[in-house]
Amino acid sequence: MKTPARLSFNNSEKSVFPYLFGLLFVLTLADSWRRVGVDLLVFFERQGRENIVKFLGGMFPPDLSSGFLALMVGPTLETIQISVMGTLIAIALGFPIGILATRNFSVGGILNEADTAGAPARFALRFSIYCFARGLLSFFRAIPEFVWAFMFVRAVGLGPFPGVLAIGVAYGGMLGKVYSEIFEAVNPRPLEALQSTGANKLQIFFYGWLPQVFPNFISYTLYRWECAVRASAILGLVGAGGLGQQIEISMRMFNFNEILTLLIVLFLMVAAVDYISAKVRAIL
């Protein structure tokens, strides 16, 4: 049982901070409402109503002609392929960087205590690797996949490849960050036991660390794949292949009935991915 040596709480003293934060929250909300231009009346004005009716009315009936459906097969497969390849690249980036960004793997805790005690150079090296890994993940994550796709289209040209790269980098950042959080929450006792046999850190990682968090690790990766399917469907809007390209064309041509077909395809795709990942999770 853990008992803190000293309890430094003083409950009798009331703090003003909750009130301060409450006020700040209300002000932020009010200001955001005004600046973002939330205007619910738009749905009731004549012009707005007509636009909505025109758009929704135009969607029905969906274009289910065999010609259009045949046209959809290619981009649909491409979208799924982009998401799969992108997620694989994201794992390849996020997994190793995520390990290095795990605090109790890289710098702190029981796996580093004896090794870095009295060796400041060792500690400094580990600390800089840890900071670099975290920084890299933040950088990958900070730029939205849409913007990455835009840049990669400029770099490598139109088509699915920039979409794959965009998903790989942006999702690599997200996976790495969450992996490191999953890894940090592990029970350290088995790790200590493995270390005491003379195992090195990688051996400790694969024998003690990964097995403990494996279900979590897999289910989060699958969840990210689901997100990647959706993301790769819209990356086409900036010219990175897949269904998005078709959505853009139909939008521009005011073919709203095609849009509805596309939305149905998207829905079926996401539902299928959801079903597959649920099945995989059930096995674990």
């Binding site: 006792r189 088995p190 036991a193 024998y207 097995p211």
Partner: peptide, 11 residues
């Protein structure tokens, strides 16, 4: 070392 809590990897 043999530990009080065994410290095995459960999975």
């Amino acid at each position: 070392t043999v530990y009080q809590q065994h410290n095995l990897v459960p999975r």
